[in-house]
Design a protein around this nucleic acid. Structure first.
Length: 499
RNA sequence: GGUCCCGUGGUAGAGUGGCUAUACAGAGCUCUGCAAAAGCUUGUACGUCGGUUCGAAUCCGGCCGGGACCUCCA
């Protein structure tokens, strides 16, 4: 069973029914991290949103998804961070060699590893990626794209750098007769640039403030690549926007289906990526759908270091939060709304998540199997309502609402269900988990219970069976003091570490 | 300065003109020796001031508050 997926498209500013360029295959590109520091939870929201989207496309849309996420390893911040004397250089990166390119790679690989560990911890699977290209591995492709842009009259060399001319672009006619348009994703009001920004912009030797850099000429001891444009060598490195244009074209082909990123990337990053693809590759579109997630706030305030509410994943883990609870908490807000990250909400969502996990474990303990014969129980609502909410522009809050209704009804009839009905429920929940990715479908983990604790519990059970309530309660208190809780059932008890 | 978004109960967050999601927390009940778990029931809300309307959380305007973009920030 698959459903049509509806998605908000920043290009058309409306919700549209998604359909891929090639039948059955979705090619999706996500703007990934700049690896100069550890990702913060705001970054993680963007990647979790993209992951939820690609999982929805796979599980509910039935598509084969080719997901590419780039790693930006060459820009001002990675160069500064890896430069000699950088305060960001960590001891466990080893000594700096003095070779700018080698040090850059050492520095960025360090943060790339941390990044991959973080996204894995929040439920993003490495094997869901078609590729995670590093910008420095695609310099040749970027240079070729820049040459194409210059050849088409939209790029120019100035003072050792190469720029994109937005005015030439606006006059560019594509081979198919269409006219290039600057401002398709985000129309900016150039008449009212904020004061100060224009001044800063004038530090560059470009013809117009709205022009942007394609290739930055080398300064000082920066890492660089040789590059010949119009007969002159302009050693330097790629501009930020060109990276994604070139890598997305090489790895996915143009136009691909979906491009994702945070709202802040709409302009200039995505607008410029698109313009470069149009100017260089003569492709009217880079991507058919542009997906942008909103930011998050922490305790009602913009996350910032000065407010002391700036968190990376390891900060939260140190505070005792489970990364999967953080992923799950992100589901409580729609991706296009500002999400107010609060500790209270994470712990509330953690409890909700545990409740559903309990239901899954109970089904398993009743012998349910995802692969067994399935039959639907008349008192359990169809799981389709959950998927319908996901399919409707990733409406996770209402999907969760539907899911709780589903789980509650399973709980109610759990004991009277037939085996095949339990199989069906377990299979339904498993499929939901293919999108949400926070539950375990393995048997409930068994705790190794120390012999001493086991003996106390057995003694208590004996006392309880003999209706010696005082002794039974005393032993329960002893066990509690030792960190174990005991739950009585009809036939026996369950020991669990107290949480 | 320009353009734009948001403001819902203790918390998070849906909902777009009349039927007021959902989760966590709170209260009551069922079950249980008592608990725990689970289930059932339930209260409290639409920033503020005006306007439109038979009727507004939902439409319009002012104000207050939070936030975004305006050249390399998810």
């Amino acid at each position: 069973m698959t459903l049509p997926i509806r998605l908000y498209n920043s290009l058309t500013k409306s919700v549209e029914t998604f359909s891929p360029v090639h039948d059955g295959i979705v090619r999706m590109y996500s703007c990934g991290p700049t690896v100069y520091d550890t990702a913060h939870i705001g970054n993680l929201r963007a990647f979790i949103a993209a992951d939820t989207l690609q999982r929805t496309l796979r599980t509910i849309g039935g598509y084969d998804v080719r997901w590419v996420m780039n790693v930006t390893d060459i820009d001002d911040k990675t160069i500064d961070g890896s430069a000699r004397g950088s305060v960001r250089w960590k001891e466990d990166m080893g000594p700096q060699t003095g070779d700018a390119l080698v040090d850059l790679r050492t520095f960025t690989m360090y943060f790339e590893r941390l990044f991959k560990a973080d996204i894995q911890a929040v439920g993003i699977r490495q094997d869901h990626f078609f590729a995670m290209p590093r910008a420095t591995d695609y310099i040749k492709d970027m240079q070729e794209l820049i040459l194409d842009i210059v050849r088409h009259g939209v790029g120019y060399v100035s003072d050792g750098s190469v720029y994109f001319s937005t005015s030439a672009y606006r006059n560019l006619e594509l081979p198919d007769g269409r006219r290039a348009t600057y401002g398709r994703i985000f129309q900016i009001d150039e008449e009212h640039f904020r004061e100060g920004v224009r001044i800063d912009a004038d530090e560059y030797d470009r013809e117009s403030v709205s022009d942007f850099v394609l290739w930055k000429g080398r300064k000082g001891q920066e890492p660089y690549w040789d590059f010949e444009v119009d007969g002159q060598n302009v050693p330097g490195r790629p501009g930020w926007h060109i990276e994604c244009s070139a890598m997305s074209k090489v790895l996915l082909g143009l136009p691909f289906d979906i491009h994702t990123g945070g709202v802040d990337l709409r302009f200039p990053h995505h607008e410029d990526e698109l313009a470069q693809c149009t100017a260089g590759y003569h492709s009217h579109d880079q991507a058919m759908f542009w997906f942008h997630n909103e930011f998050l706030e922490v305790e009602g305030r913009k996350m910032s270091k000065s407010l002391g509410n700036f968190f990376v994943l390891s900060d939260l883990v140190q505070r005792g939060l489970d990364p999967l609870d953080i992923r799950y908490a992100m589901m409580s807000a729609h991706y296009r709304s500002v999400y107010n990250f609060t500790f209270e909400n994470v712990s509330a969502m953690a409890k909700g998540r545990r409740r559903i996990q309990e239901t899954i474990w109970k089904l398993i303990e009743h012998g349910a199997s995802r692969d067994g014969e399935k039959q639907y129980h008349s008192d359990v609502p169809s799981i389709a309502s959950v998927f319908e909410r996901f399919a409707d522009d990733l409406h996770t809050p209402t999907a969760m609402s539907e899911l709780y209704g589903y789980v509650s009804s399973v709980d109610v009839v759990m004991n009277t269900m037939s085996d095949s009905e339990r199989n069906a429920a377990l299979a339904d929940l498993s499929r939901v988990n293919d999108v949400v990715a926070v539950w375990s479908f393995d048997a409930r983990p068994t705790h190794s219970i120390p012999a001493r604790i086991q003996q106390l519990a057995d003694e208590r059970w004996a006392a309880r069976s003999a209706k010696n309530w005082a002794e039974s309660d005393r032993l329960r208190d002893v066990l509690a003091a030792e960190g174990w809780s005991v739950k009585d059932g009809a036939a026996g008890y369950v020991l669990e570490p107290r949480s």
